[in-house]
Nucleic acid binder design. Structure first.
Length: 273
DNA sequence: CGATTCCCCTGATAGC
DNA sequence: TGCTATCAGGGGAATC
C-alpha cells in the first residue's frame, strides 16, 4: 500500500507534467471525487504549477488558485500514458494533458480520493493541518520526535500509524521500523528510554529513506508512473514475515493485531518495554 | 475529548 | 472445479 516512500516516488516521477494543462477528465468512479464529481470540471483548462507531497497526500497546485489533493489509500497510483488506452485493468480516472500525455489513475479497491479545493482552503479541508512531523525533513530531530510522543500513551505501533504524530508511516514501514529499532510493536511508549528514542528516530529515517531509494515497496499492486515495481519488498525484515525465520536470530517470527492491523515481529529481538 | 469500532471495496487465498 | 468465507487495509465517521 502506498505510504510515504511510494507517494514520494510518484511525486518525483510526476514532475514531468508540471507546466501542462488539464484538457479533459474522465472518471468511472465518481465517488472518489470530493466534494463531488462535478467539482472536477473546475480543473479543466488549469495549468499544473507544482506537484508536492505532504504525508501520504499528493498535492497538485493549479492555476486559478485551484488545488487537487490525491490520496491513494490502499491501491491507488498514477500512470503516465501516451494514449487514452488504459495501461491497466483498473484505471478509474484519466486526465488528458496539453502535451498529449494521459495521466491515468488506477485504483482496484476504489478507496482513493481526489479532492478539488481552493488554494486557501485545501489544508483545512484535507486535514493537512492536523498532520504530524514530516520524518524526512530536517525538522525531524530526536528532540522533535520526543516532543511529538510527549504525553502520549499506548502501543508503539499504534502511535507510529497515527498521522497526527509522525506523518506518512503505514503498516509496512511501521513493522520495519519497530524491527530496525529492536522494539516490540506493543511496547508502551511511556516506557521508552532515551536510548529507545534514539534507536526509533534512526530507524524511522533509515527505513523511509531505504523505501524511497528502492522506489517503494510492491506488495500486491503498487507500481510507479511507468508501471514498474519498487524494490523494497525484496529486503523486508518484518512486514508479513510471520511464520518465517528472523533474519537476525533465526527464531520464528510472530504476529498479532495492533490497531486493527496485522503486525509481524520477532519476539526475541524486539523486547517489550 | 480520547479510544475503539465500523465501513468503504474487490482480488487473492483458504477451506470444503 | 467451483462455490463461499475470510482477509487485507487508510482514514473518516459513528459510537463508546
Amino acid at each position: 500500500m502506498p505510504e510515504l516512500p511510494e507517494v514520494e516516488t510518484q511525486v518525483r516521477d510526476l514532475q514531468v507534467v508540471v507546466g501542462k494543462k488539464i484538457l479533459a477528465i474522465t472518471s468511472d468512479t465518481h465517488k472518489a471525487w470530493k466534494p463531488n464529481f462535478a467539482a472536477s470540471q473546475q480543473l479543466l483548462g488549469k495549468k499544473i504549477l507544482s506537484i508536492t507531497r505532504r504525508a501520504k497526500y499528493l498535492i497538485f497546485k493549479l492555476s486559478g488558485e485551484m488545488v487537487l489533493v490525491a490520496h491513494f489509500r490502499m491501491t491507488g497510483h498514477f500512470l503516465l500514458a501516451k494514449s487514452a488506452k488504459p495501461l491497466e485493468r483498473f484505471i478509474r480516472h484519466s486526465f488528458q494533458l496539453s502535451n498529449g500525455v494521459f495521466l491515468q489513475f488506477s485504483d482496484i479497491r476504489k478507496f482513493a480520493t481526489l479532492t478539488v479545493c481552493t488554494e486557501n482552503a485545501y489544508q483545512k479541508v484535507c486535514k493537512l493541518v492536523e498532520l504530524g512531523i514530516e520524518p524526512l525533513e530536517k525538522s525531524f530531530t530526536l528532540a522533535a520526535l520526543q516532543q511529538a510522543f510527549k504525553n502520549k500513551k499506548g502501543m508503539l505501533k499504534a502511535l507510529l500509524l497515527n498521522q497526527t504524530i509522525v506523518a506518512g508511516i503505514g503498516n509496512i514501514y511501521a513493522d520495519e521500523i519497530c524491527f530496525n529499532a529492536k522494539l516490540h510493536p506493543a511496547s508502551r511508549v511511556e516506557n521508552l528510554t532515551q536510548q529507545d528514542f534514539k534507536n526509533l528516530h534512526k530507524a524511522i529515517q533509515q527505513e523511509l529513506r531505504k523505501g524511497v531509494k528502492n522506489r517503494g515497496t510492491t506488495i500486491g499492486e503498487y507500481v510507479d508512473t511507468r508501471g514498474k515495481h519498487g524494490k523494497n519488498q525484496l529486503s523486508l525484515r518484518a512486514y508479513k514475515q510471520h511464520g518465517k525465520l528472523c533474519g537476525v536470530c533465526g527464531k520464528t517470527m510472530q504476529k498479532m493485531k495492533i490497531s486493527q492491523r496485522t503486525t509481524s515481529f520477532c519476539a526475541h529481538c524486539q523486547q517489550k518495554r
